[in-house]
Design a protein around this nucleic acid. Structure first.
Lengths: 123, 123
DNA sequence: ATTCTATATATAGATAGGCTATATATATTG
DNA sequence: CAATATATATAGCCTATCTATATATAGAAT
């Protein structure tokens, strides 16, 4: 039985629209391959973000098609891995998306009744 | 031509998953009818949230089916309006969703590089 | 009078992005 | 030798939002 009172994962609908931001943010730290991105996101989020392979890989392919990230196969290591890193355009996009994200967070905050709103620093 | 540099509206994908929260939050202020919810959201967001009728009305019907809001036709006024108000369950749900939202915001903040992250109060 | 705009609600169908399921392949552990 | 973890990939499903359309009336403009 699943625990509905303290759900261990964020709803996929909620994350829709910020998955790109998350992936770009994780890649800004250091170059990663798909599987490690998946793990890093899971760990960094306290298991609340657990992207399935069928979600993550299409995102990576899309980001690469948009030239926000670039890839390189590593055949030398024990396992065949496809490493990704941010491009210059990708870094810019990360900044833009972070800005948009903050604007959106402020917007929601202003809609919430004061009792339920976090205090946020002015934009 | 649309202005891509300073988009006047939030992407629909970004808002996906938090529209219910917004509608519940607006209704927590006072009872509203559909059209006024649409306007209030647009004004309160600085034109950045502009729900189309085809988006809003299905949301209201779904929230009512979940008994989070209740409706009442007003035939007396010049125009036929369907007024909505929060139920007790709806108020609880608003609190829950606000909590989840805050947790999610904190999660994203922790993923962003410090330079791009807002400083948030501890949860 | 008539046309246009704003107000007010409703729904069918298109779109898009995340999910499920499945496939392939290899290293490691028991 | 079997089971599990690592590693990537894609076809097809699901669903919430959007587009387009429909209906109806009040008020303003011509």
């Amino acid at each position: 039985m699943t625990n509905k009172t303290t759900p261990d994962k964020f709803d996929s609908q909620l994350m829709r629209g910020s998955l790109d931001l998350m992936v770009l943010a994780i890649l800004d730290r250091e170059a990663q391959y798909g599987y490690s991105i998946q793990q890093k996101l899971r760990e960094a989020s306290g298991e609340k973000v657990d992207l399935k392979a069928g979600t993550l890989y299409p995102i990576l392919h899309r980001l690469e098609a948009e030239k926000l990230i670039r890839s390189k196969w590593d055949e030398s290591s024990a396992r065949k891995r496809k490493w990704y890193e941010l491009t210059k355009t990708g870094r810019k996009r990360l900044q833009q998306q972070a800005q948009t994200w903050h604007a959106y967070v402020h917007c929601i905050q202003s809609l919430l009744p004061p009792k339920l709103a976090l205090t946020l620093p002015a934009p």
